[in-house]
Design a protein around this nucleic acid. Structure first.
Length: 997
DNA sequence: ACAGAAGCTTA
DNA sequence: GTAAGCTTCTGTT
């Protein structure tokens, strides 16, 4: 279960293997939360609500996604269990049981009923039964889940429940965010869970008035049980106890111990009404839950739920709740057995009973149906642009912003003069507060050719400074959610004006989390896909290519229509897409791996990196000279001055006129002049191909790097600011462009000279930290390969170990060729190996490559199993998942075309490994700044190159920075995932990137 | 002016 | 065999 998803079923069914039941000890939680949390009263009438809020926060966290907590699993089934009354079968057994319980505090009493109502509002089964304690019901459902093959987590920290802990049953303490398993029970009590009953029988419980044996505490009890095995053994051989007092007490109180045992033994065969199939987890009904939360006046949680369920909280009315007063209450069971109260609390109709049976199958409950309804609503209505407005004065803008503040949600977009956010000047911004209700605020539109007249600013525009001053409080308002398509761009633009955009949602990123692998995530693509609407393309307004003008030159009315539509479409998309995250269990991927990376990358892009112009200029000259010399030699050899950069001309000369052997054709029928092919010819002794390959290398370095990079040096910062795309790759990797700083040469000595131009500021150093063999480590972890796991744990040479296993040669004195082949196979596995590819890579016959692969799978059958399981999974579900739950879709994996199918299979095998590695470094990046901050270090993250992070730091802090960076990177998977293979990071510092790497 | 192919750079 | 982005050439618009 390390990686496989458990697709949620919409149709109630019993449990099966792999399902996970959450049982919340509701009654236990009430008392604990009441005492642990600070007092809280509803503002409007002083109703005490601290335990209710604690309960709602806890349940929301658990329901949203278990990765938010230390539980680490996603529940498929969920129920909240309560005590029904204070009188149970145990009172018949022992009348004094729980007799010394005092009445609950006055301000706790109304909260009993409210918490039951909250449970119903969350769409969760609220389970209780007369004559039984919550603990007995929990024991019964644990047994049922276990028999069905499912796992259970009990949400409680009550020691009375620890007897239930076992291989398939764990506990989770929601207040300490801590898991309790078998080791934790042993650690705390000194005995395994199955001996907890005997231990409690000896120690007793003063709170519940369980007598136990006087003078025996947990330490003594554990020691006695260790010595005598169990309670019966102890009572039978009590005479052997050496200590006089202890021996006498046990013999005298043997009956008390026996009755105590009966009292603390949980009854796991309660004749329950609701079955496990009634506990199938459904997404909460946004409006229903929000209605309750609003009534409770839990503003933060209301907003969170609104965001997650994409419900406009302003639309939802508060609902009446039933409040039990102290004078009508009579103990902890207040409000229980009062379905009418719970019903009204949830705003449900009279037909909807609270019992889980009636509740579970309600149609609109399922997350997928909610999403479907949203989608239907979204694509049904045509996009009406008639209500879009242009705001030309501050008073109108203020009125709109006030309305946004009230609503708490706004879709937002900036219009600027450049697609590069570091160069963009703000021209205007648009916002949408409801479908069809959108406005554009022009700020800096100019008339005519500004290059001649200095740009005449058009009248009736709010000055940029004034507009930003009005906008800033809203963009920074924690209670207003900003919805933006590709928010990083807007964040960078706004940061440059001293504005922090928070909190935000990004429709592009939501789509990426939901649908990576199924197409692009641009606004146009998403609008077409989900709304059936093609928004106006920018080129219709600003032109393209040579005729491209800045957005400031666009007519204001046309700009208003375009920009307002952009915001309107963004808002509509968000309403369709956001609920899908919860429906598909992808909330935590979005919230943990995607959204928090946005401000991190925005900062990295704004910092940029220093690039030494002079070094590049000198290199460019050297490269030009080298290329010119080679050109002359090449012309001499072919006797003609062709364009060497034209593969067509080159191919015609080499394989046509000069008749060199072995030329193959490309798919357009041209001669192939690939480096591989020219290298082969050079190896056969031909002079010309070598020179062509060298010429290509020099011209490549010159045009792509030494000549292009200086053009990216920013006029103000004097640094180079790349742009990272978060949603461009299918696997979860970032991509870098304008310029791409993820493909700066490193393999050849010539190429590495480019890296010497990437430098630290005066008094600073660059620190480069890279993961060693991260994808192979991920492979060893997910495929659970003992030899590889061990080799990594020992820090051994992984390729040599592979070779040793395959070819039965010792690692000591291994020929380099043997190791090289094993290395190629290891990489081949990561790429979804094929005999064809391996043969190509090693320049060996395909049959030989096949034999290698066969041998490899014999020695590492776990890897073959992993590959087959991944293919089967991808074929069944159409996607694969990383160990952190990121999904990557392969819609063509069922293609009837074998080569398309095979390609998708290889890609899906690679995606889990590459994607997991990408997730790991994302997690490291998300946590890095805080870790450096905490350590008091000023190091700044500048670049990411897939498995490498580059920092700039003052020289004095280099030594302190490296261990922090390594610590964060090596432990990045924790606490979400604990890998069975250690991660290793190499880090070093130098003045330039070449020496640091 | 643009799109696609070919080729090269990286992890 | 996986994942990207950039430059040049070439043919078409």
């Amino acid at each position: 279960m390390a990686w496989t998803a458990t697709p949620r079923r919409a149709i109630p069914a019993g449990m099966k293997k792999g399902d996970h039941l959450f049982l919340v000890d509701g009654s236990g939680y009430i008392f604990r939360a009441y005492h642990a949390l600070p007092p809280l009263n509803r503002k409007s009438d002083g109703l005490p609500t601290n335990a209710v809020l604690g309960f709602c926060n806890m349940v929301w966290k658990l329901m949203q996604d278990a990765r938010n907590t230390d539980v680490g699993v996603v529940p498929t089934h969920f129920a909240v269990i309560f005590d029904y009354s204070s009188k149970t079968f145990r009172n018949d057994l022992y009348p004094e049981y729980k007799a010394n319980r005092s009445a609950p505090p006055e301000d706790l009493i109304p909260q009993f009923g409210l918490i039951r109502q909250a449970t119903t509002a969350f769409n969760l089964p609220c389970i209780e039964m007369e004559g039984f304690e919550a603990d007995d019901l929990i024991a019964t459902y644990c047994r049922l889940a276990c028999e069905a093959g499912g796992d259970t987590t009990i949400i409680s920290s009550d020691k009375d429940l620890m007897q239930l802990v076992g291989p398939t049953v764990g506990m989770y303490d929601p207040m300490k965010d801590r898991q309790i398993g078998i080791p934790e029970v042993v650690e705390k009590w000194g005995v395994p869970p199955e001996k907890m009953i005997d231990l409690q029988a000896l120690t007793g419980d003063s709170v519940d008035n369980v007598p136990g044996v006087p003078g025996i505490g947990p330490k003594t009890a554990a020691q006695l049980l260790e010595q005598f095995g169990d309670l019966d053994g102890l009572l039978a051989r009590a005479g052997e106890i050496k200590q006089d007092k202890r021996r006498e007490s046990i013999i005298a109180n043997a009956d008390k111990a026996r009755i105590s045992r009966e009292l603390v033994t949980l009854k796991n065969d309660v004749p329950v009404v609701e079955g496990l199939d009634d506990f199938v987890l459904h997404a909460p009904d946004g409006p229903k839950l929000i209605g309750f939360l609003k009534t409770m006046e839990f503003t933060t949680l209301t907003r969170r739920v609104g965001e997650a369920t994409a419900t406009e909280i302003g639309d939802v009315q508060a609902v009446p709740v039933t409040i039990e007063r102290a004078d009508t209450a009579h103990g902890p069971d207040v409000g229980s057995g009062a379905p009418a109260a719970a019903e009204s609390a949830a705003g449900a109709g009279p037909d909807e009973a609270v019992s889980a049976k009636a509740q579970a199958p309600a149609q609109g409950d399922t997350p997928s149906l909610l999403s479907a309804l949203r989608l239907e609503a979204a694509s049904a209505g045509k996009i009406d642009k008639s209500a879009y407005v242009a705001i030309r004065d501050a008073a109108t803008l203020k009125a709109w912003l006030a309305e946004v503040k009230e609503t708490g949600i706004v879709a937002f977009d900036t219009q600027t003069t450049s697609s590069d956010p570091m160069l963009a000047d703000l021209v205007g911004f648009s916002m949408a507060i409801a479908a069809g209700r959108a406005a554009y605020v022009p700020l800096a539109h100019t008339s005519g050719n500004g290059d001649l007249l200095g740009g005449g600013l058009i009248d009736n525009q709010i000055p940029v400074r004034e507009a930003l001053a009005l906008l800033k409080p809203l963009l920074e308002d924690r209670s207003v959610l900003k919805i933006v398509q590709d928010v990083k761009y807007d964040i960078v633009v706004m940061n440059r004006h001293g504005i922090d955009v928070t909190p935000f949602d990004d429709t592009m990123l939501i789509s990426y989390v939901l649908d990576a692998g199924t197409g692009h995530h641009t606004l146009a693509a998403l609008s077409e896909k989900w709304l059936g609407h093609a928004p106006t393309p920018l080129k219709d307004l600003a032109g393209s290519g040579r005729s491209l003008v800045g957005f400031d030159q666009v007519d204001i009315d046309r700009a208003a229509g375009y920009a307002a539509e952009h915001a309107d479409v963004t808002l509509r998309l968000w309403r369709v897409l956001k609920p899908r995250l919860a429906a598909k269990g992808l909330v935590s991927v979005y919230e943990r791996l995607e959204r928090p990376l946005v401000p991190v990358l925005a900062r990295m892009e704004q910092r940029g990196i220093s690039v030494d112009r002079q070094i590049l200029s000198r290199l460019s000259g050297e490269l030009a000279q080298g290329a010119a010399r080679l050109e002359e030699e090449i012309y001499g050899l072919i006797g003609e001055r062709i364009n060497i950069g034209s593969p067509k001309q080159l191919g015609d000369i080499l394989f046509g006129r000069m008749g060199l052997p072995g030329g193959s054709k490309t798919k357009t029928g041209q001669w192939s002049t690939s480096a591989q092919l020219l290298e082969d010819l050079a190896a056969e002794g031909h002079e010309l191909p070598r020179k062509i390959v060298d010429w290509r290398q020099l011209t490549k370095l010159k045009s792509t790097y030494t000549d292009a990079l200086p053009g990216f040096i920013h006029p103000d910062t004097r640094r180079v600011h790349t742009s990272y795309a978060l949603a461009a790759t299918t696997t979860g990797r970032l991509s870098s462009s304008d310029p791409n700083l993820q493909n700066i040469p490193v393999r050849t000595a010539e190429g590495r000279k480019i890296r010497t131009a990437f430098i630290a500021d005066k008094g600073h150093k660059l620190v480069s930290a890279d993961y060693s063999q991260i994808e192979l480590r991920v492979l060893a972890h997910v495929a659970e390969i003992p030899q590889l796991t061990q080799a990594f744990a020992e820090g051994a040479d992984i390729h040599a170990i592979t070779a040793s296993e395959m070819f039965n040669v010792p690692v000591e004195g291994m020929p380099s060729e043997v190791r090289r082949r094993a290395k190629a196979i290891n990489f081949g596995i990561i790429y979804g190996i094929s005999a064809f590819g391996l043969a190509n890579q090693l320049s060996i016959p395909r049959e030989e490559a096949s034999a290698y692969i066969k041998k490899y799978f014999e020695r590492f059958p776990g890897i073959r199993d992993y590959i087959e399981a991944t293919k089967a999974y991808a074929r069944e579900y159409g996607f694969v998942e990383t160990i952190f739950g990121r999904r990557i879709h392969y819609p063509e994996i069922r293609s009837s075309n074998p080569s398309i199918r095979a390609f998708n299979e290889r890609a899906s095998i690679n995606a889990r490994l590459q994607g997991t590695a990408a997730d790991i470094i994302r997690r490291a990046m998300v946590h890095m700044d805080e870790a450096l901050d905490k350590a008091g270090l000023s190091a700044r993250m500048l670049l990411q190159v897939h498995d490498e992070l580059i920092f700039e730091t003052v020289e004095a802090e280099v030594e302190a920075t490296i261990p922090i960076v390594r610590q964060v990177m090596e432990h990045a998977p924790m606490p979400a995932v604990s890998m069975s293979v250690p991660l290793h990071v190499d880090a070093r510092a130098a003045h330039n990137w070449d020496e640091a790497h």
